[in-house]
Design a protein around this nucleic acid. Structure first.
Length: 773
DNA sequence: TACCAGAGGAG
DNA sequence: AAATCCTCTGGTA
């Protein structure tokens, strides 16, 4: 029996001018670093003239070996030269030289980093067995002294480091105390340097495998690094004794720890959840349906300085609650990252920081190697710019029949785009192939796809989809809850990857970019939904609404629920008989009542009276809670209770409350993302103006940050009146704005769709007396 | 009133 | 650094 082990990380070092791959394993009880010394760096050249190129290559002393090889490149098999170099660092220079040679047409795969290259070629699977090994996970969080505005690492010290791990150890390290302080988790050291050193020691003593943080990439680790430099101490967290490394990753930083992967939960939470804000407390309450203990940021230095033991203890407890929340979030979200890491076969540090495009591309690169396909190069910057201008037509959206409908049946195509790609073999290598000449699978876009040879991407997609079907079968029969959860995560990871494939074709930076494939997929999608609509209509259904892959149907005559469902099932059976095997129109719900406002904006109630809302203000972070809640109450009154009078009373009550000035700021905050640098805005909306005011008070904003603002009493325009919520006192809000620009538009939209005329509503809106209806 | 920039949702 | 379609607000002229 072989020992269980999991591959946590890979890198390479240079020893005696030779590259040595290091594999960082966690075994049953110990940690192992395995070194590989016989893996040579290489890349490919596609020759104009191979003999000539071989001769030319002899000139370069960094070339150690050249092999001829046949590989698949899109539609054809080609001869390539595999060029081995002495060291990985030789590749960038040699690539330039070689691609400049007359005898060379093109250089390929010279941009695959060496450690990644090794992982692909070796076939090793990172994170394999990680669930069986009981990995040791630790979370940490720092508290920083913030005198005024943003804390700065060149002056403001770290005052606490909190630590919690999956073995049950929890600590808050600090260097101040008060008489009578008695919190078993508090560890008092002499100074700031000591708490940093103690933190490192804890991680090492506990033999931690994965370090989790919340925003550690862009705050905690850069800050610790800043302080460590000032205090002249090391941050040797790597299992090989190396320092943490801060690397640039696009607009952000990444904090890399050798052999002990650091996973930042913040970007993961942003991908996984759709919530109004992504502060630690927001994500915590989203996952655990529980409120986290909070103290305000400006109270940190106040509590630290105050001399009150109670306040100091509050601070310690707050710090502990942060780290415990981070650990809980990590334990909940890491399994999906493990699974993605296994499927993509890249280290968890990388995978956890990848977007959809990078994940798909990494998967394709690995699979291409297995199939002897030579990998396309990354497009040059100017090419990606050009691609951005190549727009194409996407999905079709049916204009809804506005107003209330009863007995609505919902159908949608199961995984429409993946199933189209598979059943029509949509791939850059199969498009408009020579062998099918206008036959094959002919898309409504005019392109056709090969019927003889399966494409690379459809083949991978089919593997993913079949694997997912198999895993979902296992989920059904699995009784052990641990294993069931594991399988559930597996199928989720497969779904994420399968659903990203279409978007990847249209992604301007993709190696396997193909606008023609992307537009063929959407063209087929439109055709299938159109055909479905036509068929439904000829069967006596009314199409109330539809979007991309879905249709909402009612029956044209008065029928009872069971009769309608019977008709509906007969309808989908008929449709499915005519569809390709991989495709299926699925029944996905019956709704006794629904209201349709516009495209992408509607609400339905199911048979358990549960309200489903799409696109309306209720679902939007940039509307105040008071407006969202009022809209929800109005919808419930109309859909569930069929009582417009009650709806009107709700609105009246809400308007009165706003007028009285007693609405809390929590209900008035408007969340909006600052999507760019503040100076880059052409037109400053209220959120930008609010942010710019805050900058004058010492605040800083990261691009992508979500802020909450209030429209206050002070100022002329809405923008003038806007202020970040943290600078606004309770009660300081503009009732007129919240009535006329928030609550009334949200509810009038619903009432308007009920058939009240615009004039009626305007008049009533002004009088704020909705009682008569 | 018409137009634009900007945001965020649906699928 | 996945795609397009779509609605709506607030600023500006």
């Amino acid at each position: 029996m072989t020992e269980l082990k999991t591959l946590l990380d890979v890198d390479y070092i240079t020893r005696d001018e030779k590259a040595v791959i290091r594999l960082f394993y966690r075994g049953d009880n110990d940690r192992k670093i395995v070194e590989v010394t016989d893996f040579q760096p290489y890349f490919y050249a596609i020759p104009e003239d191979s003999e000539e190129l071989i001769k030319d290559l002899k000139r370069f002393d960094t070339v150690v070996k050249v092999e001829k090889k046949n590989m698949l490149d899109l539609k054809s098999e080609i001869e390539v030269l595999k060029i081995y170099t002495k060291q990985p660092k030789d590749v960038p220079m040699l690539r330039e030289e070689v691609s400049g040679l007359k005898s060379c047409k093109e250089v390929r795969e010279a941009d695959i980093p060496f450690a990644k290259r090794y992982l692909i070629d070796s076939g090793l699977v990172p994170m394999e067995n990680s669930e069986s090994l009981n990995l040791r996970i630790a979370a940490f969080d720092i508290e920083v002294y913030n005198s005024a505005g943003e804390p700065k690492s060149d002056k403001d010290p770290v005052i606490m480091i909190s630590y919690a791990d999956s073995l049950g150890l929890k600590k808050v390290l600090t260097y101040k105390t008060h008489a009578g302080l008695n919190l078993e988790f508090a560890e008092i050291l002499n100074n700031e340097a000591e708490i940093i050193k103690r933190f490192i020691q804890l991680v090492r003593d506990q033999k931690i495998d994965i370090i989790a943080s919340y925003n550690g990439d862009n705050f905690d680790f850069p800050y610790l690094r800043g302080r460590s430099e000032k205090l002249k101490i090391d941050l040797k967290l790597g299992v090989d004794g190396s320092e943490i490394k801060l690397e640039r990753r696009g607009m952000n930083l990444g904090a890399d720890i050798k052999g002990r992967p650091h996973v930042d939960m913040f970007p993961i939470a942003r991908q996984v959840f759709h919530i109004s804000r992504y502060r630690l407390e927001d994500v915590y309450s989203e996952i655990f349906d529980d409120e986290k203990f909070l103290i305000k940021s400006y109270e940190i230095s106040k509590f630290w300085d105050s001399g009150s033991r109670e306040e100091f203890e509050m601070l310690l407890k707050y710090s502990l609650s942060d780290v415990q929340a981070t650990l809980k979030i990590a334990l909940a979200l890491l399994p999906l990252q493990y699974e993605l890491s296994r499927i993509i076969r890249q280290p968890i540090y990388e995978v956890s920081r990848m977007g959809s495009g990078q994940r798909v591309e990494s998967l394709l690169i690995e699979r291409a190697f297995r199939k002897n396909i030579i990998i396309p190069n990354k497009p040059l910057e100017e090419i990606t710019e050009e691609r951005l201008d190549e727009t194409y037509v996407g999905a079709y959206v049916v204009e809804p029949i506005k107003g209330i409908h009863d007995n609505i049946v919902l159908f949608d195509f199961r995984s429409l785009y993946p199933s189209i790609i598979i059943s029509h073999n949509i791939d850059p290598s199969t498009i408009d192939c020579d062998c099918c000449k206008g036959n094959g699978f002919v898309a409504p876009s005019g392109h056709y796809f090969c019927k003889n040879k399966k494409g690379f991407i459809p083949e991978i997609l089919e593997e993913l989809v079949n694997k997912r079907i198999a895993v979902k079968e296992k989920v059904k029969s699995e009784k052990n809850p641990e294993k069931k959860k594991f399988l559930e995560v597996q199928q989720q990871a497969l779904k994420i990857l399968a659903n990203s494939m279409y978007g990847y074709y249209g992604f301007s930076r993709a190696r396997w970019y193909s606008k023609d494939c992307a537009e063929s997929i959407t063209a087929w999608g439109r055709e299938y939904i159109h055909k479905t609509i036509k068929a439904a209509e000829s069967e006596g259904f009314k199409v109330v609404y539809g979007d991309t892959d879905s249709v909402y149907l009612t029956y044209s005559e008065e029928l009872n629920r069971d009769k309608i469902l019977e008709k509906a099932m007969a309808f989908s059976d008929k449709i499915n008989k005519e569809l390709p095997e991989a495709m299926e129109l699925e029944f996905s719900g019956f709704y006794p009542r629904g209201i349709f406002i516009t495209k992408k904006r509607y609400a339905l109630t199911d048979e358990k009276d549960k309200l489903t809302v799409k696109g309306l203000e209720i679902k939007r972070r940039d509307w105040a809670e008071i407006a969202r809640k009022t809209q929800e109450d109005v919808l419930n009154a109309i859909l569930k209770e069929k009582d417009p009078k009650k709806a009107a009373d709700i609105v009246k009550e809400r308007v009165q409350r706003i007028k009285s000035g007693t609405v809390s700021l929590r209900e008035l905050g408007i969340n909006t993302q600052i999507t760019r640098n503040l100076k880059d805005y052409v037109q400053d909306g209220p959120h930008v103006v609010a942010a710019k005011k805050a900058v004058k008070l010492g605040r800083e904003f990261k691009q992508g940050e979500i802020i909450t603002y209030i429209v206050t009493k002070k100022g002329d325009s809405i923008s003038d009146k806007s202020q970040l919520i943290e600078y606004v006192k309770e009660g300081d809000y503009d009732p007129d704005y919240y009535i006329n620009n928030q609550v009334l538009p949200a509810v009038l939209r619903i009432l308007e769709a009920l058939g009240y005329s615009e004039d009626e509503l305007k008049g009533l809106g002004k009088q704020l007396t909705l009682g008569e209806w």
